[in-house]
Amino acid sequence: MNIISLEGKEDTPKVILDKDNGVFEISGRSLPEDAREFYRPIIEWLQEYASNPNPETVFNFKLEYFNTASSKLLLDVLQTLEGIPNAKVIWYHFEDDEDMEEAGKEFEDMVDVEFEFRILAD
């Protein structure tokens, strides 16, 4: 599969989706002007990946901030992981960022995927 590698910008997150090296990660800030358009290729990639996944998939979310339009699309991203065996989400948040931790817990409630919570170092 091709690799998706997007550089992080002021308003869009860094994204790496690399099946061969087993790297799945979204980090930084997500407040794009058109969240649907930004996440479309990511969701399509994951849907394709889901049809022939690695034996194990660990997806790192290291988000500092996301807007409400992105939250809906992040739910869509997480839902693509639901059918994948041995898929796991590691949800990072700054130690003092209770809102980001709670956002992760809410996603955990809404999707059928294992979550682990970790502290994001400065």
Binding site: E33, D34, A35, R36, T68, A69, S71, K72, L73, L75, D76, M110
Partner: peptide, 15 residues
């Protein structure tokens, strides 16, 4: 968020 509709203008109705 579960209803999950993004409006024509790109809002999720969550603002």
């Amino acid at each position: 968020i579960k209803k999950g509709e993004i409006s024509e203008k790109g809002g999720a109705g969550l603002g």
